[in-house]
Every structure is written in C-alpha cells, then in structure tokens.
C-alpha cells in the first residue's frame, strides 16, 4: 500500500505539480515549435512520452548497474545522451515503418526529440532526486512524458484560438506564445505545494 501511495504521489507530482515544462523550463523548443495544431501536438507528445519512458528506464539501469558499480559517474552525461539518441533512432525507424503518414507529418521534429531538453532533463532529475527503485523511475518517466503532452496540448488548444485574435504585429508568433505560456505557468503555480 505504501509503495503504491509513493508511486501515485510521484506520478501526480511530476505530471502536475513539478511539470517539467512549467516549473523546470524543459522542452521549450518543441513546445514553441509544434504547438500550432492540436493533433500534431498530441502526436509529438506521444512520441516524447515513448522516448522518455524508454530512456528514463534505460539510463536508470545503466546508472545503477554499471556507472555506480564501477565508479564511472564522470561519463554519466555521455552515456545518457547516447542512450537517448539511440532510443530516438529506434522510435524513428518504428514510426517510419508502421505509421508512414504520422512520420511525414512529424518531419524534422522527430530527430529533434534527441535535443529535447525534457528527456535528458528527466534522466538527470531522476538521478538528482536520488530515486533508488526501478519502478519509481519508470513511473516518473511516464509521468514526465504525460506532463509534457498535457502542457503541449493545452498550449496548442490556446494557440488555435489565438490565431483568430487581434495580436499586435510585433508580438505575433513566438512572443505571444511565450507570454501565454507565462500565464499558464501562473495557473500551474496554483498546484505548488499540493504534494509534499
């Protein structure tokens, strides 16, 4: 029961309270780039969720079974980024083979997941928070992906309506998106302290 509670709390915490996009500024690039249409945003979110789950789990395993065993912590960042790059390649090949339509609509953004800070960020945070249990690492990774999807979908929904609004010319595009994101952050701050 206790374990279940810890897992559930950790999950909610990483999805809502410590949402990587709103509180840690991770994954801003795709957040600004792909949040124009809600269906693409959702697709991107799913791809990120998949990659982050895979790489979060793998990096935890590598960190605990290899790096910490042999005192090779200094190569941690190199290993993490290589695992992520590998995972992205895997997802890219999978999607190209089985969902060609989706692959075409992703275009450049799929390889760009490698440089999505949210993924490396999560791997680093799992290490920083001192998670010492595989199950928890997996749950946090899934949660981070879902949190990212949530953030990017909310943003896409707002931006679809924003297209109809009369925005000052110089604020069109990225600036107004950032300001909107700021207000969203304010809203998400209401969740702070919900889980301790």
């Amino acid at each position: 029961m206790d374990t279940l509670q810890i897992l559930l709390m950790g999950f909610i915490s990483v999805v809502i309270v410590n949402n990587l996009v709103f509180t840690k500024f991770l994954g801003i690039c795709p957040y600004l780039g792909v949040s124009g249409r809600i269906d693409m945003a959702f697709g991107m979110g799913c791809a990120v969720t998949f990659v982050v789950t895979l790489s979060g789990t793998l990096t935890w395993l590598i960190d605990h079974l290899i790096l910490m065993q042999f005192g090779l912590e200094v190569t941690r960042y190199v290993c993490f980024i290589l695992v992520i790059a590998g995972a992205v390649q895997l997802v890219e090949m999978y999607i190209r083979k089985f969902f060609p339509a989706l692959y075409d609509s992703f275009g450049i953004f799929l390889p760009l997941i490698t440089t999505n800070c949210a993924i490396l960020g999560l791997c680093l945070f799992v290490n920083l928070w001192g998670i010492d249990n595989l199950l928890e690492a997996v749950v946090l990774s899934v949660g981070a992906g879902i949190g990212f999807t949530l953030a990017i979908c909310i943003m896409a929904g707002i931006r679809e309506n924003l297209n109809l609004a009369d925005v000052p010319v110089c604020l069109k595009g990225a600036p107004i998106t950032l300001i909107t994101a700021g207000i969203l952050t304010l809203a998400f701050m209401g969740f702070a302290g919900m889980i301790r």
Partner: peptide, 21 residues
Amino acid sequence: MPVGAFITLGLLLGAVNLITR
C-alpha cells in the same frame, strides 16, 4: 519565478521585432 521568465522573454522578443521592423 517561471512566470517572470516567460513574460519578460516574450516582451523582449516583441521589442526586438519592433526595432527590426
């Protein structure tokens, strides 16, 4: 806080757009 970061950068980008136009 995060809010300040987003809004300041948004306005800064707006200002740069204004100057370059």
